[in-house]
């Protein structure tokens, strides 16, 4: 599909644009002085509506559009999130795509590198370790980055609609990519020890049962602490899939079981008996407790 610049006069589909300061604003198309400066996204939702950027992103795009390429690139290179000039990744991606007609230019190269740095921040870090976990992280990083770069290359030569999702919700899109790749890496990892392959109802040792009897990682007293939540989620991530899913649903306060067939339960969702769910919940609690307390309890 050819690149189109849409000239806009008044309204679209009967929707009148709002006026923000001296700029006219429309949910899907931004323009000033009757000329579009930001092209709309092209991907359609399942219900047939066009994807559209967050309003605050569109306003930021207009602001950045008034800068020279050199000024814009310099602003995109700011890494401190607290700096009021910090540019959201959605905007950087937009300007990378807008500059794709000249992918040999230094401006394009500069923006491209800033964007890749933003993606890398969302992926597992490279380490010098060589254990299984580090190798899996390295594969996730490499493969996720590869897929994202492939999309950018496709976008230079055509229009990669999948990137529209990244322009709407960059961090969520990268996280979805990350989990997609994680699944692939996990599938390829034949030697992975999974709790699913163990005897499902194998119980816990008595002393472990005692230790976790009153343990609740989602205790309201501590769950409000940011650092704790971060450590807790990192610990949950390392659990086998079944346990990870159980804990995620518990975190969202979903019941393990219910006599009401209309209630979404963990047992029904994961197609496991209530007893199996409870056993694996306890195993997960124990693993988390060990991880968070470095084995001391």
């Amino acid at each position: 599909m050819p690149l189109q610049t849409i000239l806009l006069s008044k309204s679209i589909d009967g929707i009148e644009p709002a006026i923000i300061g001296r700029l006219s604003y429309h949910p899907q198309i931004l323009y000033k002085r009757d000329t579009t400066v930001i092209t709309p996204l092209r991907k359609l939702t399942k219900s047939g509506n066009l994807y559209h950027r967050q309003p605050e992103i569109e306003i930021k795009l207009l602001e950045l559009d008034s800068l020279t390429p050199k000024e814009r690139l310099a602003q995109c290179q700011i890494v401190d999130h607290k700096n009021p000039m910090y540019v959201p990744s959605e905007c950087i991606l937009h300007f990378v795509r807008a500059a794709r007609e000249n992918p040999d230019g230094t401006y394009y190269a500069g923006l491209y590198k800033v964007l890749i740095a933003r993606v890398l921040k969302q992926l597992p870090k490279r380490t010098n370790k060589s254990d299984k976990e580090a190798l899996s992280d390295a594969l996730i990083r490499e493969n996720a980055l590869g897929i994202f770069c492939e999309l950018l290359a496709d976008d230079v030569l055509g229009y990669a609609e999948r990137l529209d999702f990244y322009e709407v919700q960059f961090m969520r899109a990268v996280r979805m990519l990350r989990i997609d790749v994680y699944r692939e890496v996990q599938r390829d990892d034949d030697g992975k020890e999974s709790i699913d392959s163990e005897e499902e109802n194998c119980g816990l040792k008595k002393e472990v049962e005692d230790a976790i009897q009153n343990y609740n990682p989602f205790d309201l007293k501590i769950i409000s602490i940011l650092d704790y939540r971060f450590e807790l989620d990192s610990a949950i991530e390392k659990l086998p899939d079944l346990q990870k899913r159980i804990l995620q649903m518990l975190k969202l306060e979903m019941p393990i079981d219910s006599i009401d067939p209309n209630i979404v339960t963990i047992s029904k969702t994961l197609k496991k008996s209530e007893k199996t769910i409870r056993t694996h919940r306890d195993k997960a609690f124990e693993a988390i407790r060990r991880r968070l307390t470095r084995g001391e309890y």
Binding site: H81, R172, R175, M176, R178, I179, R183, L226, D227, R229, F230, L232, D233, I236, E237, D241, K244, R245, Q248, M249, K251, L252, T269, L270
Partner: peptide, 13 residues
């Protein structure tokens, strides 16, 4: 469920 975990996990800038 996997995606909900990924999207709601806590991150530190």
């Amino acid at each position: 469920v996997d995606l909900s975990f990924e999207l709601t996990r806590t991150t530190i800038e």
